[in-house]
Design a protein around this nucleic acid. Structure first.
Length: 499
RNA sequence: GGUCCUGUGGCCGAGUGGCUAGGCAGAGGUCUGCAAAACCUUUUACAGCGGUUCGAAUCCGCUCGGGACCUCCA
């Protein structure tokens, strides 16, 4: 195991600046990401967050870290509606459809997995579920009560925020909130008599008689609070304190704030050293969310059936589209932007296909082109520089296009491989393939069978030699119908992905 | 209302004090049976006003616009 040498900087929500990433125990890295609540289909906004951390996982691995990537499935505990008197989301769906809660969980977990596969998101090292960690959660509640940081009320247990701060805690430090402000804001909403303070959040909720999902506990038959599962699962698999905790911007408060308070209280240590938050995907400037009804399902995207979509877009097009922006910026979803992304992605995909076929040819009569050598070296170095700078995939992709130029030139015989020298040639080829597939997760989307295409291409060549241009055009149409174009180069004929 | 983010060329989108981001679209060229692809060249910019500075898209202030969180949310 070589020690990673890339100086990676990550924007840390805790410090509000880009911090040099130094793992607790290099080369090992612990990464925890809040996964989906499986009560409905995941939409494209959700995908953006998982894509962000997929990229982080890939890059950390690429530069030599051994990453344990934990991404949970929330299958209980989320409340519906206002405050803590709401119903469990999964339970509510189950009642609506008259099926078992775990059937709901299974259905949407399956859907989630098919979506991650669609977008080429790598599987996490561990994918724990909240229901599978009931014992740990109950134990955590007990510890908090013992420490005087939680209290029972009517069979439910709440985290005592005022007490936490009196004991030296700093509720609000992650999300940048001031406790006094929070208290002022919530004063009016009071009406939740079970709590000592409206800010207190549920660790354990007593289940109402009609509530389907319930577990026995010392306090009541009930279910755990939403924030507790992540605390229990992250620390169980990554330790009391681990390297990186990620999630969507909208989880910063209260979810992650509560996790900090819980972890600090239970273990006496801040749970994560780096907190990362990815920004929202927007539609016409507004956050994409289920509740606003402006969300796209991945399936709608691929088929182009959503009323806001003018055409289908492939998963890799979307992946490329998202990677072209920085993860901390909002990204607006529009047809025009998607169409542009589609063309950009196709060019890169062609480059990938080509790069894999390139071979080095020695030639004594070809002069070495030092300028091009330097440009290639610089593009590769700049790619790392971009990713090291808080995962700037947008700038990274710009470097990919710089490399692409040389790959295309080599392929079209506009540049001899000998002009680069074997070392640079190999670096160019290997880097491009690794950056594309390994780091950015961008792969080719094959549309036809190679054997058939090769056959058609042979025909094309024959017709061309015989100057039967009407037939030639027919073959071209055949390719075009499959989203492919024929490339006529001086030294050879091949096909390429087209829009 | 409180806290915070944001406003870049036709479109998307990087960029935090001086150096061409990039993609898409547009224009011209090389190549070609014609195209396409590829490569080369190229047009359009930093919301407005004021300030700091030798110098600002980049820092500060104000104005206007957009958004997020404060309640479930990736």
């Amino acid at each position: 195991m070589t020690t990673p040498t890339q100086p990676l900087k990550l924007y840390n929500t805790l410090t509000r600046r880009k911090d040099l990433f130094v793992p607790i125990a290099a080369p090992y890295v612990g990464l925890y990401v809040c996964g989906p609540t499986v009560y409905n289909y995941v939409h494209l906004g959700n995908v953006r967050t998982f894509l962000t951390f997929d990229t982080l996982f890939r890059y950390l691995t690429h530069i030599g870290y051994k990453v344990r990537y934990v991404r949970n499935i929330t299958d209980v505990g989320h409340l519906v509606g206002d405050g803590d008197d709401g119903e469990d989301k999964i339970g509510r769906m189950a009642k609506l459809e008259k099926i078992e809660p775990m059937e709901i969980v299974q259905r949407y977990t399956n859907d989630f997995h098919s979506v991650t596969e669609l977008f080429n998101l790598l599987s996490p090292s561990i994918e724990p579920t909240a229901t599978g960690h009931m014992v740990e959660q109950i134990e955590a509640v007990r510890v908090l009560i013992d420490k005087g940081l939680a209290y029972e009320s009517n069979g439910s247990v709440y985290f005592d925020i005022l007490q936490y701060n009196q004991q030296g805690g700093n509720y609000g430090k992650l999300s940048g909130r001031i406790l006094e402000d929070l208290l002022n804001e919530t004063r009016d909403l009071d009406g939740q008599s079970e709590k000592r303070n409206p800010l207190d959040f549920a660790l354990w909720k007593k289940a109402a008689p009609e509530h389907l999902m319930r577990w026995p506990s010392p306090w009541s038959n009930g279910f755990p609070g939403w924030h507790l599962e992540c605390t229990c699962m992250s620390t169980k698999y990554l330790g009391k304190q681990f390297d990186i905790h990620g999630g969507g911007m909208d989880l910063k408060f209260p979810h992650h704030e509560c996790e900090v308070a819980q972890g600090q209280s239970i273990y006496g240590e801040e749970p994560a050293r780096y907190w990362m938050h990815s920004n929202m995907l927007t539609v016409n400037g507004q956050k994409m969310s289920k509740s606003l009804g402006n969300s796209f399902l991945p399936s709608e995207l691929v088929t182009g059936t959503h009323h806001l979509l003018e055409q289908p877009y492939s998963p890799m097009t979307v992946r490329f589209f998202m990677l072209q922006s920085h993860y901390r910026s909002t990204l607006d979803f529009s047809n025009e932007a998607l169409k542009a992304a589609q063309k950009g992605y196709k060019r890169l995909a062609n480059g990938l296909r080509i790069a894999k076929t390139l071979t080095y040819t020695e030639a004594d009569d070809v002069a070495v082109d030092e300028k091009k050598q330097q440009e290639i070296r610089k593009a590769i170095a700049d790619f790392y520089g971009a990713l090291n700078d808080d995962l700037n995939t947008a700038v990274g992709i710009a470097q990919l296009f710089a490399l692409l130029k040389y790959i295309n030139m080599l392929y079209a015989n506009q540049l001899q491989s000998a002009a680069l020298g074997e070392e640079i040639f190999t670096e160019l080829k290997e880097s491009f393939i690794q950056f594309m597939e390994g780091v950015l997760g961008l792969t080719e989307e094959k549309t036809g069978s190679d054997a058939v295409l090769d056959g058609m291409l042979t025909l094309y060549r024959e017709y061309k030699d015989q100057k039967q241009y009407d037939k030639v055009d027919q073959v071209r149409s055949y390719f075009k119908a499959q989203g492919l174009a024929i490339k006529d180069m001086k030294h050879r004929i091949d096909w390429a992905y087209e829009e």
